[in-house]
Design a binder for these strands. Structure first.
Lengths: 169, 169
DNA sequence: GTAACAATCTTTACAGTGTAAAGATTTGCG
DNA sequence: CGCAAATCTTTACACTGTAAAGATTGTTAC
């Protein structure tokens, strides 16, 4: 039997990841510092060696999430940066991300900025991009609404509506 | 010396009003049921005779606020329902309201619906109204942002920008 | 190596929170 | 009047964030 060592070794990072899991499991209302600590098998005051208070932990969680968000966006258009397909793939990645992390709708404002910057390879064409984003945002809001579940394949809906928008212009 | 009567007489309404005051004084984070009860000189469990839980109290506060919000909008355009001025007055009332109640940015979504319905006397002309609203919303967001204070007269800015928008179309 | 120090973790403590349950007081109605 | 319903107080409990002091380990200077 191995004894649990007094020092955890990687607590700061595990607090961030356990925190992200927890807030997506139980929502913002039932999120608490002590639960995150318990999830890491650590006393309830241990987090204070790494974060000044609970807001600082949540802030670090936010940064971590937006990093993974940008990775996902970048990966979704790898190799086709300038293709016409790229903007559609970006939209799908955007929606998918917020379906995986519904509690992070809070961070959608900064997500939006990244999404726009990323989907704007050459200037101009901004009219179409704004229209696209409204749609993406709308679908994401709908699908991540608690109580709403969509049994079909949302990707189908998304692509259909994207094609319709293309014809409009 | 008058003895304080055992029954308050108007507790439900006073809880709602004291709650609105409190949330605008201390913000959402430090808002609590017990403080509202104390503000009404009543024991901390008294609110449970009128509300099932704290969410129900906050909900009632929201309803009360939106009622006052609509009153303010209606009063701002009294007598000039169909004039060209009306839409400008509506915008000013909208901004003013959220400056008086900064903590109620939460309710801005429903406020937006009312604002749109109110500013749409005859159908058509919707392009201009949407553009107007984006501006009103943007200014309201800016002015009610904690940490941002604008020393000048925001009304001046608002009207200038409105006139510019008119010329655009 | 060892002594001193810094980092990390546990324990203990406290004030504040929401809310459930039981008892007190008043109002209203038969 | 008498009894029931409404309203309020008291008490209690589990949970929260966080401050403070002590325990354990890792690191560095000598």
């Amino acid at each position: 039997m191995k004894e649990k060592p007094y020092h955890h070794g990687n607590l700061r990072n595990e607090l961030i990841e356990a925190g992200i899991e927890l807030i997506n499991e139980v929502g913002l209302r039932d999120f608490s510092l002590r639960k995150v600590a318990t999830k890491c098998n650590v006393s309830h005051a241990a987090p204070y060696s790494h974060f000044k208070n609970i807001d600082e932990l949540v802030g670090a969680m936010g940064e971590h999430v937006t990093e993974r968000f940008m990775d996902k966006l970048r990966a979704s258009i790898r190799g086709r940066e300038d293709s016409r397909e790229a903007v559609s793939l970006l939209g799908q990645a955007y929606i998918e991300f917020f379906m995986e992390h519904p509690a992070f709708a809070l961070f959608r404002k900064t997500a939006y900025r990244m999404f726009r910057r990323m989907g704007q390879p050459e200037s101009g064409d901004s009219q179409r991009l704004i229209a696209l984003w409204s749609m993406v945002h709308g679908i994401a809001s709908l699908l991540t609404n608690p109580g709403v579940r969509y049994s079909g394949d949302w990707r189908e809906v998304f692509i259909k509506r994207l094609e319709a928008k293309e014809r409009e212009v």
